[in-house]
């Protein structure tokens, strides 16, 4: 068994949240730059230029790309040959989140109770998803998810008879209804299959895929292309001011499901698209 001290996890989590809030991922930066060549709307082009400039300022000044530095979402894949020493995994992650948000001058955006709404003051608790995997490594993925795009996400239990068309209609309807609110250009994560709770998680995991990678299955790869083309025909455009570039990417993740069900979930992410993965 391999022993890992809890502080290695908490320190890593703290650093990761600072990093993703200051530095726009290179794949997003490149996608925005490429979009500038395609966008036809003058206002849209202006928006894209300002987003690139924003990324440069954020990195240079170590100031968050966006003031909504998100609720902390942490995926942990824990090798079954690892023993965490000193504290439990959940505490280690939450201590890391609290430290990162405090040391990094990030905004604390979490309230203790959904109705009483008193700020917890340190952006904890994080939303933590854990899985046990073979081996002696710990894979940590962090994502800072803003409220604006998360609020525009949706889930539906379709009938199997709805098929591909039903999925396409639901995704388009969700993106159309979201309009300018989730800060387009957006990244669209789609989860298909599983059940009521798994489909949204698949959609969230789909958002973690690099922008230049597609689904390995040809059918779903085509579906990703079709959806991206249809979304970019909606005319919403950068910041919703009208234009060709509404989404930079559509990623779909799937899972087997019940003979009676066709669950579909759409998780929308804004152009800051903050996430990163490390292994310790």
């Amino acid at each position: 068994m391999r022993e890992v001290h809890w502080e290695r996890i908490s320190k890593a989590v703290a650093e990761l949240f600072k990093k993703i809030n200051y530095y726009l991922n290179e794949d997003v930066y490149n996608a925005l730059k490429k979009s500038l060549e395609i966008e036809e709307s003058p206002v849209g082009k202006r928006v894209l230029c300002q987003l690139l400039e924003n990324a440069e300022i954020a990195a240079e000044e170590r100031i968050p790309l966006c003031q909504d530095t998100g609720i902390a979402v942490v995926f942990i894949s824990l090798g079954q040959e690892v023993i965490i020493k000193g504290k439990n995994l959940e505490d280690a992650v939450n201590i890391g989140v609290a430290e990162g948000y405090s040391e990094g001058y990030l905004r604390k955006s979490v309230v203790r109770d959904p109705i009483k709404r008193i700020n917890t003051g340190n952006n904890t608790p994080a939303i933590i998803h854990t899985e046990i995997i073979p081996g002696d490594k710990i894979k940590i993925t962090v994502s800072a998810k803003g409220g604006g795009s998360e609020n525009m996400s949706a889930m539906s239990m379709l009938s199997p008879a709805a098929g591909s068309e039903g999925i396409i209609d639901f995704v388009l309807e969700t993106v159309k209804r979201a309009g300018p609110n989730p800060c387009p250009p957006i990244i669209v994560g789609v989860g298909v299959g599983g059940n009521f709770e798994l489909a949204p998680l698949l959609a969230k995991k789909a958002l973690l895929r690099p922008l230049n990678e597609k689904n390995e299955d040809e059918f779903w790869r085509n579906m990703e292309d079709i959806l991206l083309q249809k979304i970019n025909s909606l005319g919403i455009g950068p910041q919703g001011f009208g234009g060709r570039i509404t989404a930079l990417k559509v990623s779909i993740e799937t899972f087997p499901c019940h003979i009676a069900s066709l669950p579909v979930a759409v998780n929308i992410d804004c152009h800051c698209h903050r996430h990163w993965t490390i292994e310790i």
Binding site: Q50, N54, I57, A58, D68, G148, C183
Partner: peptide
């Protein structure tokens, strides 16, 4: 409408 997600730029 100001640019959503451009908080670094706007802070200047």
């Amino acid at each position: 409408v100001a640019l959503g997600g451009a908080g670094a730029l706007l802070s200047r």
